[in-house]
């Protein structure tokens, strides 16, 4: 057994994903929440690429490419929204943004 078992990648990516989940739950700063979301997206990307390589199927890597495209667009728009929020409320604390709360 020369190569790394796929379960190593599965466990590594699960731990990385859970760190992202914990980050979304414990942070109040909108910027840090966006960064935690990026962590989660990255763990999923790596897992897709690992399975694509192990199953010898290029479709997985194409999907990773498209996920990166969407993630880049998401970050651009998300940061623009954060800038607008900062301009209007002078804070990026998400608990300030409770106007839409029922």
């Amino acid at each position: 057994m020369q190569f790394i078992p796929i379960s190593y990648y599965l466990i590594f990516c699960s731990v990385l994903f859970c760190i992202g989940v914990i980050g979304v739950l414990i942070k109040r700063n909108a910027l840090l929440i966006l960064m935690s979301v990026e962590l989660m997206i990255n763990s999923i990307n790596l897992l897709l690429a690992a399975f694509s390589t192990y199953l010898n199927d290029p479709a997985g890597q194409i999907f990773v490419f498209f996920i990166m495209v969407v993630a880049a667009a998401e970050v651009a728009i998300g940061l623009a929204i954060i800038v607008v929020i900062y301009r209007t409320t002078h804070s990026i604390d998400i608990d300030v943004l409770n106007k839409l709360k029922w």
Binding site: I6, L10, S14, V21, I22, L25, Y54, N56
Partner: peptide, 27 residues
């Protein structure tokens, strides 16, 4: 939040532990 995240991690690792696929050639 940390307890919830760790529980999710335990569940995921419990699912994936020992999972393996037959690999024909070196990745």
């Amino acid at each position: 939040a940390i307890i919830a995240g760790c529980l999710l991690m335990i569940v995921l690792i419990g699912i994936f532990r020992g999972y393996d696929i037959a690999i024909e050639k070196d990745p």
